[in-house]
């Protein structure tokens, strides 16, 4: 069974090269803000993660010159950008940035990304499954999250981010089905 690659977009190689010498420091407060906002808005994530909230997750985008370490603890949750993933992580998830992002906001089905080989997972599989299910249930809206703390610029920033995302990975149309009355004996 040959793998037919999914339509996950990748960040062009030249952009990765451009980003490589840039410092990661400016990213850290943005990531901290995003994870705090996400966990505050979606507390059910903790219920679904249960004891796996104490695990350390490494997210390794293959098309970016840095990676992320996620620690979704109930107290002091953190997300950090790192040049290379450290040893000792409980989980490592590798794939194009937009595959990782789509896994987090439910745009893509995690199993389908695994079947197409866009995503590889290593480490504690129970923690991987718990994280995937918790995030998929949360319906995280990255444009909203990103713009949340931008004050008067929030509406414009959210709109621009949403438009950019739709341009890059397409718009997921989910029209609500209209049903007629049915009876059941």
């Amino acid at each position: 069974m040959e793998s037919s690659r999914s339509s996950v977009p990748t960040i062009p190689g030249f952009l990765g090269k451009v980003m490589k010498p840039l410092p990661l420091a400016p990213l850290q407060p943005l990531l901290a803000m995003c994870i705090r906002a996400a966990l505050k808005k979606h507390p059910r994530i903790f219920d679904r993660l249960d004891t796996y909230a104490d695990k350390r997750f490494g997210l390794n985008p293959t098309d970016l010159p840095f990676a992320f370490v996620l620690e979704p603890r109930r107290q002091n949750a953190s997300a950090q950008a790192v040049r290379e993933l450290p040893d000792g992580l409980d989980v490592k998830i590798t794939g194009p940035f937009f595959a990782l992002m789509g896994l987090a906001d439910g745009y893509y089905d995690g199993d389908a990304l695994f079947f197409s080989r866009d995503l590889t997972v290593e480490g504690d599989m129970e923690a991987v499954v718990a994280l995937r299910n918790a995030l998929d249930d949360a319906k995280i809206d990255f444009p909203e999250l990103f713009a949340a703390n931008l004050g008067p610029f929030a509406p414009a920033a959210e709109k621009a981010t949403r438009a950019a995302l739709e341009l890059l990975r397409g718009r997921r149309e989910n029209p609500t089905y209209t049903r007629e009355e049915k009876s059941w004996n």
């Binding site: 789509g102 089905d109 199993d111 995937r132 997921r172 989910n174 089905y177």
Partner: peptide
Amino acid sequence: RQRGRAYIADVVRSFR
């Protein structure tokens, strides 16, 4: 039941 929202939405819509 173990699949994500994207699977559910696509497969259900297709069979509907």
